[in-house]
Design a protein around this nucleic acid. Structure first.
Lengths: 300, 300
DNA sequence: AAACTGTTTTTTCACGATAAAAGACAATAT
DNA sequence: ATATTGTCTTTTATCGTGAAAAAACAGTTT
């Protein structure tokens, strides 16, 4: 089967949404940068759009003929990367229970179960290993270390170390730095979300990530910035499996963020430190309570 | 060509060294654990040893017939892992100069140049990416970030954060912990090396790694422990390309280590902090001076 | 019965091959 | 002259395949 054309399909779908807004599409290179794909893919998209009567395409002229219908779109599941598919399957297994620490991970079995080649699974596991949840035995299988209480504590220990430092660096940034307007915009988004929390509380997770990434970036240290990938991954799945009191938790977190933002804007290092500590402490608490006791009793 | 049998060859060579010591070899499973390979590989080794007249093998009886000769050994270069081969080639290119930051890395070209398949190169690059020296463009090439001054500073910033914390944790370990005897042994090795520094100064690098890993392990945090892989990798190659004043540098470092060890043994947190800071500062200095100016001027 | 050896099955590792996607080059239009 | 399109080449992503190595199973020996 070789390689799926999900890049094309995803870009096609995104390009369809562009059709609503304009009467004609820009040049091929421009579309390429807009969609984040190569011109080769752009041309494949245009070819299909012409075929399905969405546009008339003649060299530079790309006139929109009609609005896209729902059935013009490729199904969502066909736009996913193989890596995403594997990650989802893997995490489902991991969190579905029955994934005890010390358990072996079998590449071949995983590959068969997901219906992909072993190479992709291997590459996924190598990439995934930096999250500290699995470990490779030389010339042999992978071992699951388990999503234990110990893991959560080790993760949050580093997170707190890194974020305190980043927050201090953030507060020390010159007034004309672009981050301050980014921060203002984020503050706005927080307030809007807070005002409509009942309906939109599920949107917090995404905002949370953007906020913390902005702060971490102030460290200007690639290891700190990259480490946020680990946190983001864990919290991403955490949000999926722990829905208890989600609304309340997010409401509290938004409040803490707003205090944190005020502290940053005050540039008072003492205040920043306190606000950061307080928020991270409750974030850690949320994560810890979501780990089932059975998991936390396993050896590590 | 499929898969090379370097595991067998390496284990065979190590098994040859065992022959010097005994009149007969232990059971197959025992040999397996001793050499760190499966029984399948052990049997392949035994079969060959019988063939070349090194041993007489009949079921449980594995009698040594003669001492191994130099030509019984497989050549060193045939015992390397593919991953090691690729890493060496890659690092040679990286450090040979002409490896400017921003440069593209071509999987196919690398694979052809080294004479291996693309899969192995891809997997190597994925594993290597956690060192922060390269970055992947989605659906496209890898980009070299360059061994710049910025890299060294970011690396040492984290190292110092982690090691200070680990050292404090180390000093707080109970008296009956096994680490104290490990530390005593390391102290001994340091003193012996110091006494014969003129002849053995090149052995410091390996001792250095063992010492720092012992300390980092006291953090009981997998992210801290794993991060030492990054440091070890950088220092490993650093020692290879920067031979200037190697003896003097190592002599100084041994002295600093001994002070550091004394501080740990005193369990005085103030002393530990000071000794750790001092040593890390000079380690950073050594690393920084080894980075050519041209490299440090590149954008990051 | 416990540990060992002999044999068979399964898994990992690495390759070449192929479609998707990116990128380069040449021709053309503004 | 510069940006855009048309065409061709190269690289990346993924699979199936086969040998090396591990692991499981079944007899043997002490």
């Amino acid at each position: 089967m070789s390689k799926s054309n999900n890049v094309y399909k995803d870009a096609y779908n995104r390009c369809l949404r562009l059709l609503d807004e304009t009467r004609s599409l820009p040049s091929e290179p421009e579309l390429g940068t807009l969609l984040g794909v190569s011109r080769t893919t752009v041309r494949t998209i245009l070819a299909r759009m012409e075929e399905t009567g969405l546009i008339a395409w003649n060299k530079r002229a790309k006139t929109v003929l009609r609005e896209p219908r729902p059935d013009d779109f490729f199904p969502e599941e066909e736009t996913d990367t193989l890596a995403e598919i594997i990650e989802r399957s893997f995490m489902r297994r991991l969190l579905a229970g029955g994934a005890e620490a010390g358990m072996q991970i079998n590449e071949l079995e995983l590959a068969r179960e997901i219906g992909v080649g072993t190479t992709s699974v291997r590459e996924f596991l190598i990439r995934f290993s930096r999250f500290g949840l699995i470990e490779k035995r030389r010339n042999s299988h992978w071992v699951l270390k388990g999503f234990t209480r110990a893991f959560a504590l080790e993760l949050t220990e580093i997170r707190e170390m890194f974020e305190l430092r980043s927050a201090a660096a953030f507060a020390a940034l010159p007034q004309d730095s672009a981050v301050w307007t980014d921060l203002d915009r984020l503050e706005d988004e927080h307030r809007q979300l807070a005002n409509d929390i009942a309906a939109r509380f599920t949107e917090f997770s995404e905002l949370d990530e953007r906020f913390h990434r902005l702060i971490h970036r102030a460290s200007r240290n690639r290891f700190i910035v990259d480490f946020y990938d680990v946190i983001a991954m864990i919290f991403h799945y955490h949000y999926q499996w722990n829905k208890a009191q989600e609304r309340e938790r997010n409401e509290v977190a938004i409040g803490e963020h707003l205090v944190y933002i005020e502290a940053l804007k005050s540039r008072d290092l003492g205040k920043v430190d306190a606000a950061c500590r307080k928020h991270l402490k409750s974030a850690r608490q949320t994560l810890l309570t979501s780990i089932p006791e059975s998991r936390s009793l396993q050896k590590h």
